[in-house]
Nucleic acid binder design. Structure first.
Lengths: 257, 257
DNA sequence: TGCATCAGCTTGTACCAACAAGTTGAGCAA
DNA sequence: TTGCTCAACTTGTTGGTACAAGCTGATGCA
């Protein structure tokens, strides 16, 4: 006799069938009542099992429609090439990357002045609560919410490069603008973490339960000075990051698994 | 009148209180029946709310004990220094790193021969299903499951460096052993992704619902040849990765947020 | 034809009840 | 003191019911 609880048996059976292609990505699962009959369990028990798969990010549900197997089309962002130190791209690196991938990028943009949080202050080497300029992007690919990007600049830098605090875009790109102002970014420190989305992030990135976010913090240096800190949040199911270190052959298999 | 469902009101109220420090990390929440009284909701409704917070990774529950606010002590792994290309460390880079952090590392180890999956084959540039040698580590820090590491070597390489297929440890480290065999690793390609753990991973890493895993794939190159592919899975709540690119000051604030 | 309505499906929310199973501390017995 | 049992707490599992709310296709009216 199986001593696993019944809702877990339901989840395990369905997970196995999804893995084996019985229910391929994009297809719909049988309804709760059908599963209830099949597993000889109450609707509540079946729901518990389905809920486990939702939490694993394997399926999602829509009221009135049913449960659907999640699709995973992963976009890989090459972080070590993203903003090339020696050949900074003209304009926005993100737009270039997405367009090259044959997708359609859109974004909303906002500038505000905000006090530094612990996290930001520690990285910008400024006091907690001191003034920073935040330039915030909400990015979409083919009209699907993709990522949010928040770049914080320290107060002293804004005094030297005042256009950072102006609401509009900087056409030639902030990196080029700063370089022209005599502040050349010569190094990065990248940190990558993951966690489940906050309710705010769930809303902005349109992720349901069961999909983690990828957090990418890039701190930019010009000599000993920290000139910016960029925090990007990605949908974990749609994004992957990559780094190239040392000598590599010209063509790397960015193979899709 | 609030049109949010009641279980969500419960989750939101508790989340706010956790964020505000009413329930600090490590502390216990009131019992389901107490919350049931407080929110004038049934036990099932309260459980739905608590379950949402569990899925967010904010709290966890133990039968007979109650709900506890999760602690987050993050260990940062510097991936660009982890295996220094110019000065490879003696022995295991992981053990050195963890010991330096004042923690106690342990691990179990296993070697097996296994056919290449799609993912592995694509990265090792070999045919799907061809023979590879897998060296597998299950790592603990202070007896807490921390990560699993699976390194795959292509068949042709094992012919030139036969000790890779032997069950025991390679005392001087595989990188040094390979270098001594004339195969110098000169570059890496790193890929980082996140997702919810599979049941296997949940078991090996002892993660409950609501904690994503961080997947780190490092493909090692010697000239045009791929000599290995290492897949590391971390508990996402306990680990963060970092990369240094370009010129950076000597001391970087690996600030804890 | 075109459009509005509605029946009948789906999942979402909320409640109730009962028992299983893990943890803890009080209190008793050796 | 030591060790055991057990009551009283905790969460876990499973069943039930009822109604709300979203989606779709059939139906029938204009």
């Amino acid at each position: 006799m199986n001593k696993q609880p019944k809702y877990r048996q339901v989840a395990d059976a369905l997970r196995r069938e999804i893995d084996n292609g019985v229910y391929p990505p994009g297809s719909r699962l049988p309804s709760e009542s059908e599963l209830s009959t099949r597993f000889e369990a109450s609707r509540n028990t079946v729901r518990s099992g389905l809920n486990a798969l939702v939490s694993e990010g394997l399926i999602f549900s829509s009221q009135g429609l049913g449960y659907e197997v999640r699709k995973h089309e992963v976009f890989e962002l090459n972080a070590s090439r993203f903003e090339n130190l020696t050949f900074p791209q003209n304009g926005d690196a993100y737009n270039t990357d997405v367009t090259n991938a044959g997708r359609h990028p859109t974004q909303t943009f906002r500038v505000e002045v905000t006090p530094a949080t612990d996290y930001i202050a520690g990285r910008l080497k400024v006091d907690v609560g001191s003034t920073t300029v935040l330039r915030f992007c909400h990015r979409f690919v083919d009209d699907v919410p993709w990522s949010t990007q928040a770049t914080y600049y320290p107060d002293w830098l804004v005094k030297e490069a005042p256009r950072l605090a102006e609401p509009g875009d900087i056409a030639e790109g902030t990196t080029r603008y700063l370089a022209a102002a005599g502040i050349a970014q010569v190094g990065y420190f990248d940190e990558i973490a993951t966690r489940m989305p906050t309710p705010d992030e769930s809303r902005l990135l349109d992720v349901g339960a069961g999909v983690p976010v990828l957090l990418w913090t890039r701190t930019g240096y010009a000599g000993d000075k920290v000139i910016r800190c960029t925090i990007t949040t990605f949908r974990g199911d749609l994004n992957r990051m990559s780094y190239e270190i040392g000598e590599l052959p010209a063509r790397i298999e960015g193979a899709r698994p």
